[in-house]
């Protein structure tokens, strides 16, 4: 069940330029699943809307959630200065996560680009499969690659070539001669479009996590829609709600 609650900050640290890593203690951890997201509410009243942030990791005891996020404005700047013991309002758990069962015992790609990398961590923890984890960064300011190495082989691509393959995640897949039966991915739209094309060529399923500006986070406002191939069951038009029907879609279902 979705709830809005007060969570307590357990820890916070900076991982890279503009990238922060925060653990919050919340009952929402009990039922959280990889690929779901939560909304955090800034305390500054001039910032009205909640900030949707993907769940990066759930602790073993299922009492805390880890989020890794990028500072993009006033709200995330406020979050980045929270210290242990501070409180924050959280709405969760939102959206449908990755369909973990679809990857079971298969050769899978877990592809994360930039701030799309965090949800790959909990997915990698829960997925029982032959995991090839492909991560794209702008530069050699890497983050979460060490955490992910515990769960599979990690391949890195950087735009400036300062670490791993020079180029993007698709370049890293080609350079390393990788192959998979199923793809799970989260990242910027150009990356997701390339993955959609790649999956169509290879005739394999790709489960991609989308983002869009949101207001409510619960499917009421129709702010965060994505065009769909077929008429959507809820909207009765070619639009699905990323917050509730997604954020994870099979790439063939959506027009991106």
């Amino acid at each position: 069940m979705k709830q809005k609650q007060t969570a307590t900050v357990r820890s916070q640290r900076q991982l890279a330029a503009q990238i922060f890593d925060m653990w919050i203690e919340t009952e929402l951890a009990g039922e959280a699943a990889p690929g779901q997201f939560i909304c955090l509410y800034p305390k500054d009243k001039s910032t009205l809307l909640p900030r949707p942030i993907s769940i990066c990791e759930i602790n073993e005891e299922r009492t805390a959630l880890r989020i890794v996020y990028r500072i993009t404005g006033k709200g995330t700047t406020e979050f980045s200065v929270y210290k242990q013991g501070d409180t924050v309002s959280v709405l969760g758990n939102l959206g449908n996560g990755f369909p973990v069962a679809k990857g079971k015992e298969k050769r899978v790609f877990l592809i994360g680009g930039g701030i799309g990398i965090p949800p790959m961590l909990q997915l990698a923890k829960e997925l029982q499969a032959q995991k090839q984890i492909v991560l794209g960064y702008r530069s050699n300011e890497l983050f979460l690659h060490n955490d992910l190495e515990r769960y599979g082989q990690v391949y890195v691509a950087t735009e400036d070539g300062s670490a791993g393959t020079k180029g993007n995640v698709m370049d890293a897949i080609r350079e390393n001669g990788l192959d998979a039966d199923v793809i799970f991915a989260c990242g910027p739209m150009p990356m997701l479009r390339a993955i959609k094309r790649y999956a169509e060529e290879k005739k394999i399923p790709a489960y991609i996590s989308l983002e869009e500006h949101m207001a409510c986070g619960v499917g009421a406002c129709l702010g965060c829609v994505v065009k769909t191939k077929e008429v959507d069951h809820h909207s009765n038009v070619h639009n699905a709600r990323i917050c509730t029907d997604g954020p994870v879609f099979e790439a063939g279902e959506v027009e991106i």
Binding site: L222, C224, V226
Partner: peptide, 25 residues
């Protein structure tokens, strides 16, 4: 009605803008 393209919502100081475009079933 299909409604408008995204982005459809944005935050402004003390409020928000929306242009959903009356998407409805």
């Amino acid at each position: 009605w299909q409604g408008n393209p995204t982005p459809r919502v944005a935050e402004v100081y003390g409020g928000m803008l929306n242009a959903i475009g009356l998407q409805n079933p």
